[in-house]
């Protein structure tokens, strides 16, 4: 079994704050090929003092569009994330999965929303 590769978010974003979607994309591009290749990855938030969902959607959530949930669960370990940011990560993963399971979910939600009201298109 391959050894786990450590990726430190703080090194990739060159900042203690993970608050930018472009930075999240940088992390995604680092992590995604490794997971695709079956490599175990530890994504460490050590040294990160702020995280928002724009970053999490782009770095972690987007993985669910490329790789199966089972494989991500097996290979990816997120560590050193402050408790305060855990709800953001949980929500990001939950809604990323929902998004990639059905990419037209938003359009459907608009047509289904308030179905008794007339919709002008």
């Amino acid at each position: 079994m391959s050894e786990q590769i450590l990726i430190r978010v703080a090194d990739l974003v060159n900042s203690p704050r993970a608050v930018d979607a472009d930075d999240g994309e940088r992390v995604f591009k680092e992590v995604c090929p490794l997971l695709r290749a079956g490599q175990k990855v530890q994504l460490s938030f050590d040294g990160i003092t702020m995280v928002i969902t724009a970053f999490l959607n782009a770095s972690v959530g987007k993985l669910y569009g490329d790789i199966s949930e089972e494989k991500i669960t097996e290979l990816l370990e997120v560590t050193n994330l402050r408790d305060a940011f855990q709800p953001a990560l949980d929500k990001s993963i939950q809604w990323s999965k929902a998004y990639f399971q059905n990419r037209s979910r938003m359009e459907e939600s608009v047509s289904e929303d308030f179905p008794n009201e007339e919709q002008s298109v």
């Binding site: 959607n57 959530g61 953001a88 939600s109 929303d113």
Partner: peptide, 22 residues
């Protein structure tokens, strides 16, 4: 009202809709 529903987002090609829920 629609925008305030968890998971709803106007972003294209990327997940979202979490910030207001948090």
């Amino acid at each position: 009202r629609w925008a305030l529903v968890e998971g709803n987002t106007t972003k294209r090609d990327t997940p979202g809709g979490v910030g207001l829920k948090l």
